[in-house]
Design a protein around this nucleic acid. Structure first.
Length: 439
RNA sequence: GCCCUGGUGGUGUAGGGGCUAUCAUGUGGGCCUGUCGAGCCCACGACUCGGGUUCAAAUCCCGGCCAGGGCGCCA
């Protein structure tokens, strides 16, 4: 039998319960983390959003009825405890609650599918199957508190610079952008696709008075990649700025990244400690490494990389051994960058594209874009694509498209940098990968 | 998609032709008034599925499914 909540309400969270508290009567609500029944005294550990408080029930100090109620509790049951705060040198944190009344709000089946106290670790697959329980672990929910703070920081940073938040469609008609595989879906009587990137939409905004925009939204890629760095659904932080070139948006990006790291370091101290992370705020500007120099560096490490190739995994790893923080790779060959990337006027074989790396991990790529209609058509054809299928996009370039630049930053990959997660799945509540579609 | 490795109680594991299938944690019960990875006692609970080899398969072989790692793919 469970109790109803009635007019009980939480007065404090665990982290607010301090030995020196001057309001001795409190109501805490949470889960039973541990039970230590010593016979004449029972210790309950009550866990809530970011802390654990010891509830101490000595048989001499609580009623016999309450004592039996406490004795019958099971791990992970949901309870509300009303009691008095007691300073106690023997208690964890020097403070404990002597209970007066307890509500059992809900029970938990036993045994649990994994151990929230982390005495026995569980594999990622087991954890993701029971993600709701996994997320009760402080080491797991800390990742999402940090991710949330990072996104908050990014929004504040961009809003302060008068960026406008936009929302572009995720249901799209065309698979003709080339490159990555798309997820096909049924759109009434037609076929449609899940959007792989807001790229073309945010560029079209450059031809409007919404000429500094950002979007934080999911992107979908139907690649069969099966690695620790790839997801089939991810969050992209996309930015596009008119009347700007790649240098402007690189400055914007590095300041945004450094600012987010500083902000997380300041506001998520406890979560970072839990994860054993000691974040260094990188100095700006970040180093710029020319693509041609990257090729030389990688080859000097004994990894074969030809000029004109995209970075292989081995090349990224070799680079990561040389560069130990954030850095840009610039002046990429036009050949291996998308059609909308602006080639260098003097040497069109080189483009105004850049990647932002953290050690061996690519976290962002961006560029100055092609804003000239005829050049864009030429570039689309050059990539073996049909300009006709880009009509609605290309039209925006015929009626006054300013020069512009932008980038997309992978929210999960950036979160990996902030939390030390080795597997990108750790940074998504319910990851979608090659095999996983539930929960 | 390719390569490698694996699948043993709820969880994490040991074992690797014949064992009562190991250990920890857990769960259920008992003892214990200062635990804090509490302790002690008792009990419970497992060999991924299908086929094959063999007197005998959790163990060897083949196939499926699932998972982990590496790579590729990732405009």
């Amino acid at each position: 039998m469970t109790d109803s909540l009635k007019d009980w309400r939480r007065t404090h969270y665990s982290r607010e319960v301090k030995p020196e508290m001057n309001s001795p009567k409190v109501t805490l609500m949470g889960w039973i983390h541990e039970i230590r029944d010593l016979g004449g005294i029972i210790f309950l550990l009550l866990r809530d959003r970011d802390g654990i408080t010891q509830i101490t029930a000595p048989s001499k100090k609580v009623s016999a009825k309450l004592f039996e109620e406490i004795r019958s509790l099971r791990k992970e049951s949901v309870v509300a405890v009303e009691g008095t705060v007691q300073e106690s040198p023997q208690a964890p944190g020097g403070v404990e609650i002597i209970p007066q009344r307890i509500l059992l709000l809900n029970t938990s089946h036993q045994p649990l599918p994994l151990d929230p106290t982390e005495k026995v670790r569980a594999e990622i697959d087991t954890r993701l199957d029971s993600r709701f329980l996994d997320l009760r672990k402080h080491s797991v929910n800390s990742i999402f508190k940090i991710k949330s703070r990072m996104l908050h920081s990014v929004r504040v940073f961009l809003e302060n610079q008068e960026f406008i938040e936009i929302n572009t469609p995720k249901l799209v008609a065309s698979a003709t952008e080339g490159g990555t595989e798309l997820f096909p879906i049924t759109y009434f009587e037609r076929e449609a696709f899940l959007g792989q990137s807001p790229q073309l939409y945010k560029q079209m905004m450059m031809a409007t008075s919404l000429d500094k925009v950002y979007e934080i939204a999911p992107i979908f890629r139907a690649e069969e990649h099966d690695t620790l760095r790839h997801l089939n659904e991810a969050i992209s932080i996309d930015v596009e700025v008119a009347f700007a070139d790649q240098k402007d948006v690189m400055t914007l990006l590095e300041n945004l990244v450094a600012n987010a790291i500083k902000d997380v370091k300041e506001h998520c101290r406890e979560e970072l400690d839990t994860l054993g992370m000691d974040l260094d705020v990188p100095e700006t500007p970040f180093p710029r490494v020319d693509y041609a120099e990257v090729v030389d560096l990688v080859n000097s490490k004994g990894v074969n990389l030809h000029y004109g190739d995209d970075l292989s995994r081995a090349a990224e790893k070799a680079l990561g051994e040389i560069m130990d923080s954030y850095y840009f790779i610039t002046n990429w060959p036009s050949e291996i960058k998308p059609f909308y990337v602006m080639p260098n006027r003097k040497n069109p074989k080189i483009s105004h594209a850049f990647d932002l790396m953290y050690r061996d991990l690519e976290i962002s790529s961006g560029a100055m874009r092609v804003h000239l209609h005829d050049l864009l058509v030429e570039r689309i054809k050059g990539k073996g694509l049909n300009p006709d299928s880009f009509n609605r996009y290309l039209a925006a370039f015929q009626y006054g498209m300013p020069p512009h630049a932008g980038w997309g930053l992978g929210a999960e990959r950036f979160t990996m940098c902030l939390t030390g997660a080795k597997n990108v799945r750790e940074t998504v509540l319910f990851p979608r990968d090659r095999r996983r579609l539930t929960p």
